[in-house]
Nucleic acid binder design. Structure first.
Length: 963
RNA sequence: GGGUGGUUAGCUCAGUUGGGAGAGCACCAGCCUUACAAGCUGGGGGUCACAGGUUCGAACCCUGUACCACCCA
């Protein structure tokens, strides 16, 4: 884009702020100019985007985090740092595979097995090519200043190499092992999942109490010929191997070592003594099914029990059970037959039938309704089954230890700090991590097997043969499984910078400075990145490197009702719909189309119609970003509020119009950019002073990750100080035909320069509008530069903080507000010129009056201001106090006597309450003697002032009454 | 059951070593005042969840309770 054409085509800015056109011009321009690349100069600042799912789209949570990351990036870039924000996407194994499978089913009526592995993977890549641009398009629209030239994808060859390396090294270090273990098995998706992908849901369930007959004619102490065990999953009965009683339970002490007969099956089950049996619960006996329950597995291990698996990968009952020892080796000599009636039944059908059969056999003692929790797969939504399968695991303990220490030692800092506890709690109770997934889409495990089932780990077949000295004719088959997606994303910070090569990028940008992410992902990702990075990355002294210094944890964006946004609830908001706007029809189509549960569509449509009867208006990217920044407080939940967005869109408009005012008064005029004598008015010195404090404050808030406070500070300064007061104060100067050239120059210069600095301060939050305006304002401020985004970050100049000017302006504002009050309460038209008297003023008041008479007359619309020395010169008048000075408006023609008395009485009452409270404090001996001197002093001053003001007003009332 | 966070104006939320309760939006009244009606001016509105405690003084610190949310079992 040609910059000059852009500025010269239009002579003035549009009357209202039109973000769409501005944003579409600047985003591609910045990128094309290469402004997003690291400068190669100055200290490094780097962060990695948490890679979103490549085929997904950004939701509000992403927009929130990406905005924060961009604020940090732009801020550091302006501070002159060598800034890298690295972007990329994640292959998201299970999510993407499911999506493509569904599409395949819908479009071709085929399953992935119909296609075969290779053809299916081609389909996934096709889909990625088609939809993978979504995310990056959205990021660009949000103004994200990421270095697109370094964009990475977790399935890129280079990254895959890093993943392989990590796997191989961990295996060689003995930190990865393979074994037949119980895992969380998803019977619908046919894959193992990690504990983190399991969602536990409360529900009302049933506890079936079964009688297991004692073998060999034995009886319990109280004469029963059976033990009672209870279960929520009767179908697992088929895989029972023993019954446990508590070692301290005297009721069954003499039965330990004896047997019961497993009903329906007929197997003899040993009675074992184990702590796991809870004496208080039910009968105190518990059936043990080591192959189908995590707790039972541990019990079985303690008592050398076999593992008897009775379920298929689809959670149906097998035709014949499989028995294994604790090492996962097949066991012979155990009766693994399953009664014919149950063979092939789905787990729930089997449950019904087994309960019925037990009841028929008189072995069902009772059915107890209980509240329990069931584990669901977070992707499939079906109940997870603990299942004995061959899987790969990471031995986590040796990795967790240093990862805990890194946070304890402060090498990694969580912001807000409270999240460290969450991290510690999880890390200290961490289990080995199952990293294999029975999927096709993902990083294939670099392990090969020979016909004997021996395992060889290496980067490819040739490497394996060389490494293990295998004969060329030995047949090798690669493991069919892929790695958990989080295994690869755990390498994100260094894998994207070229590791395992020792690259310049790694040297410059690792460790990264900060990670911005949601708390829901601390375990999934943050913890794993810390563990893996510490293990693999060492600095030049060989000290383990952290992946990032700070972890800034954001809250979760919810809808207006505080509900989590989700596709199935139909309450998701696309950040770009906030930006561009969307009609109700399109929004409905978006929310109800392509649903996993179409029956929800009607309900969602209704809700959507109610929440957005007119669709969503366009607000622009800057307004969205500002809103997100303003919402970024330390809380855990953030309820999205369209009203806030609207408010901040209005704020953009305010800034826009302020710029229009400044430009209309400065363009083509002498703004001091070429030198010349400059005279600064009180208002000029005041706004410059306030600007320094704003710079200081915004910078400090950004340093502390308080984006909300930074945004508030900017809002406050721009609207309530620059616009409300300074622009108004500049008018009397600019419109004064007799104003000196130096004075005009000073005011124009201040208008322009303060705006220019403010734009830079606001740029990280609102990149587009600030750039657009800056292009016009910068030359007037005597600055050259291609873009605001490479200008220096403003630095406060302490010498320009001017307390005297601030006090004087407060005085001016006090008088103006007093007069506005009088007008409003006396119902006097805003434009009617008023004659004002000032009485009982001090010499300081007189000085201020003389200095600021013009400001007062213009801004308060005064006919005259008269300084009165003697009471005799005062006509009857309405009154407002400014400090001790009385601002008086003669009543003739303006004032309703009764109304004025009422108004003053209200004020007297209010002061009375203040006085009472302050007197109470000061009459408290303990307060006066124990509170700090300054606090007591303050209260005393306050009391004196309030008393005096009250007396003055009271006197005024008396005088009015006497009239 | 264990843990964490929260409860402040009608709504969404600030409140930084304890010292006169704030913002935006909404509401009421008046204004097209030559940057802005996406605006200007003025105004009403809160037992800071509840109960104790510490303190001269508590929205803030401590204890307990209730409710909400999330995490874990």
């Amino acid at each position: 884009m040609d910059k000059t054409s852009q500025t010269s085509e239009q002579n003035s800015l549009d009357k209202t702020y039109q973000p769409a056109d501005i944003e579409r011009r600047w985003a591609p321009h910045w990128e094309a100019q290469g402004y997003f690349r690291p400068s190669g100069q100055g200290p490094s600042f780097s962060q990695m985007i948490p890679p979103p799912n490549v085929t997904g789209s950004l939701h509000m949570g992403h927009a929130f985090q990406d905005t924060i990351m961009d604020i940090l990036t732009r801020w550091h870039r302006m501070k002159g740092h060598n800034t890298l924000w690295q972007v990329g996407t994640d292959h998201a194994g299970i999510a993407t595979q499911m999506l493509v499978e569904r599409k395949l089913e819908a479009e071709e009526g085929k399953t992935r097995h119909d296609l075969g592995r290779e053809a299916f993977l081609d389909k996934v890549w096709e889909w990625k090519a088609e939809s993978g641009g979504n995310i990056t398009r959205q990021l660009r629209r949000l103004g994200a200043s990421v270095d697109w030239e370094r964009e990475r994808f977790t399935m890129d060859d280079g990254f895959y190499k890093a993943v392989q390396q990590v796997f191989i090294r961990l295996y060689d270090d003995g930190l990865i092992y393979r074994g037949k273990r119980l895992v969380n098995w998803d019977p619908k998706l046919h894959t193992a999942i990690s504990d983190l992908e399991v969602e536990n849901k409360d529900q009302q369930g049933q506890f079936w109490h079964f009688r297991y007959p004692l073998a060999d004619g034995l009886k319990t102490r109280d004469g029963q010929d059976h033990l009672v065990v209870a279960t929520t999953r009767p179908e697992t009965l088929l895989g029972d191997t023993c019954v446990a009683v508590n070692p301290d339970d005297e009721r069954y002490a003499d039965l330990v070592g004896q047997h019961v007969i497993l009903p329906l099956v007929g197997r003899r089950l040993e009675i074992v003594a184990d702590e796991h049996a809870d004496m208080e619960k039910g009968s105190g006996c518990v059936k043990i099914t080591p192959a189908h329950d995590f707790n039972d597995y541990e019990v079985g291990k303690r008592h050398q029990q076999p593992l008897i698996n009775v379920m298929s990968l689809s959670a149906a009952i097998l035709d014949q059970a499989q028995a294994f020892d604790l090492k996962g080796q097949p066991l012979s000599g155990i009766d693994t037959s399953i009664p014919e009636a149950y063979r092939g039944l789905d787990r729930y059908e089997a449950r019904r039938l087994i309960v019925a059969d037990m009841e028929a056999a008189g072995l069902l003692e009772q059915v107890e309704p209980i509240s329990n929790t069931l584990p669901y797969g977070d992707r499939s939504g079906v109940v997870i089954e603990p299942l004995l399968t061959d899987q790969w695991f990471v031995r986590i303990q040796p990795l967790a230890e240093p990862a805990i220490q890194a946070v304890e030692a402060g090498d990694i800092r969580f912001v807000p700090k409270q999240y460290e506890n969450m991290y510690f709690a999880w890390m200290r109770d961490i289990q080995d991590w199952c990293i294999s997934r029975q999927l096709w889409w993902g990083h294939r495990i670099p392990a090969w097997y020979d016909d004997q089932g021996n395992v060889y780990v290496g980067s490819d077949e040739a490497d394996v043969r060389a490494k293990y000295g295998l004969a060329d004719d030995l047949t090798l088959n690669q493991d069919e499984d892929v790695l958990d997606t989080w295994f690869s994303s755990g390498l994100w910070t260094f894998g994207t910078l070229g590791w395992p090569e020792s690259t310049e990028a790694l040297k410059a940008f690792h460790p990264t400075n900060v990670l911005v992410t949601g708390f829901d992902i601390i375990f999934f990702w943050v913890a794993r990145m810390i563990m893996l990075t510490l293990h693999f990355m060492k600095d030049e002294q060989g000290k383990p490197q952290v992946p990032f210094r700070d972890v800034y944890v954001t809250g979760l964006i919810r809808d207006e009702q505080g509900q989590k946004m989700s596709k199935s609830k139909g309450n998701v908001l696309d950040p770009l719909d906030m930006v561009d706007g969307i009609s109700l029809e399109d929004l409905l189509a978006k929310r109800t189309g392509n649903m996993m549960q179409p029956q929800m569509a009607e309900k969602i449509a209704k809700r959507t119609q109610k929440a957005f009867p007119d669709g969503i208006a366009a607000h622009g990217t800057d307004a969205l970003r500002f809103t997100l920044a303003a919402l970024a407080s330390t809380g855990r939940d953030i309820n999205w509020d369209m009203k806030r967005l609207e408010g901040y869109r209005n704020f953009c408009n305010k800034l826009w119009n302020a710029a229009r005012y400044v430009l209309s008064n400065a363009e083509g005029e002498d703004c001091g950019q070429h030198g010349g004598e400059v005279e600064l008015t009180l208002a000029d010195r005041w706004i410059i002073s306030r600007l320094q404090q704003t710079e200081q404050s915004v910078t400090q808030h950004l340093e502390q990750y308080r984006f909300d406070l930074a945004a508030n500070t900017l809002y406050e300064f721009i609207w309530n100080e620059y616009c409300d007061w300074y622009l108004e104060l500049s008018k009397p100067v600019l419109w004064d035909e007799n104003a000196s050239a130096a004075r005009l120059r000073g005011t124009r210069q201040t208008l322009v320069r303060v705006l220019e600095v403010t734009l830079r301060l606001a740029h990280p939050i609102m990149p587009f509008i600030t750039e657009e305006i800056w292009q016009r304002v910068a030359p007037l401020a005597g600055l050259a530069g291609e873009t605001i985004m490479l200008q220096p970050w403003p630095q406060a100049d302490q010498s320009r903080i001017d307390a005297a000017a601030e006090q004087d302006i407060e005085w001016v504002k006090g008088i103006i507000v007093a007069i506005r009050n009088l007008r409003a309460e006396m119902n006097i038209a805003p434009g009617k010129p008023l004659p004002i008297l000032l009485y009982k003023g001090h010499s300081e008041d007189l000085r201020r009056l003389n200095d600021n008479r013009v400001f007062l007359q213009k801004l308060a619309k005064l006919e005259s201001v008269t300084w009165v020395e003697h009471e005799a010169d005062l006509p009857m008048s309405a009154m407002q106090l400014v400090g001790e000075m009385e601002v008086r408006l003669p009543m003739a023609g303006f004032i309703d006597k009764e109304a004025e008395i009422t108004r003053l009485s209200k004020e007297v009452d209010r002061l009375g309450q203040d006085i009472k409270r302050t007197e109470g404090k000061l009459s408290n001996e303990a307060f006066v003697s124990k509170a700090p001197e300054a606090v007591v002093q303050k209260e005393q001053t306050k009391l004196a002032e309030a008393r005096q003001a009250q007396a003055t007003l009271q006197e005024q009332i008396e005088q009015l009454k006497a009239l």
